[in-house]
Amino acid sequence: MTVTAGLDLGSLTTKAVVIRDGVIAGSVVMKSGVQSEDIAWRALKAALDQAGIGEEQVDGIVATGYGRVRVPFAHHKVTEITCHARGIYHLWPEVATVIDIGGQDSKVILLDRGGKVRDFVMNEKCAAGTGRFLEVMARSLEVNVEEMGELSLAAPRGASISSMCTVFAESEVVSLVAEGRPVAEIIRGLHEAVAQRVAAMASRVGWEEPVAMTGGVAKNRGVVKSLEDNLGTAIRVPPDPQIIGALGAALLAADSKK
């Protein structure tokens, strides 16, 4: 029996996945605190408890995400790029492109037939297209970020948001509210703007079908829908898109044991 764990320390949430012989035995998602070392340990413990596995039985741990460098007990540190690729390859080996929209960064990853990273591209400094952008906009609109997906799907059309600079876009959103545009339409407009940005990144890297999406924003059906419209293809979203990075990390830990 091989037991390995993957920890994904993102800017907003920390994810832990424990796998036993290639099957997920436990997984948790927690809010990231300031003390990432502590949160990493707590997340790992929680996932192990869920799986009913003791610490001493763990054969390998891989840490990923922004906080990966601050996990002293991890055996390896791997970037989220390789981890998301590995996680998706495990679920759907035929997937050629992974889109991951996280809190800080969004990325488009191209996989080769063996699930290895062939190329990747990440968001530009000035561009909005991240979870953080949506969060800032949700605050301007006084809605809960989790509700945005459902709200936007109810809108018949999207308000046009032209600027993609966070500051410009925020002022545009405020103007739209002042003009009396329904909030749902504004949110749909924001989703379309994010989707356009990410679709542009995907084109830069030369995306191919099939496409899968991971990361917290993948839970927002509004963004996924807009992205599908922009790319003109269906996008696969795993049941728990947030944990794919951690899953990939756990799988990489297992790979290194072979």
């Binding site: 922004y66 460098v69 540190k77 791997v78 970037t79 989220e80 790029i81 390789t82 800080q104 960064d105 990273v117 062939r118 190329d119 990747f120 990440m122 530009e124 400094k125």
Partner: peptide
């Protein structure tokens, strides 16, 4: 991406992720 002389634009975490991702590739 970065800035040659404005260090306020330097994001160590983002830079490391990109470099390590590239090295893994």
């Amino acid at each position: 991406e970065g800035d040659c002389v404005d260090k306020s634009k330097y994001a160590p975490g983002a830079t490391r992720t990109r470099l390590e991702g590239f090295l893994e590739m």
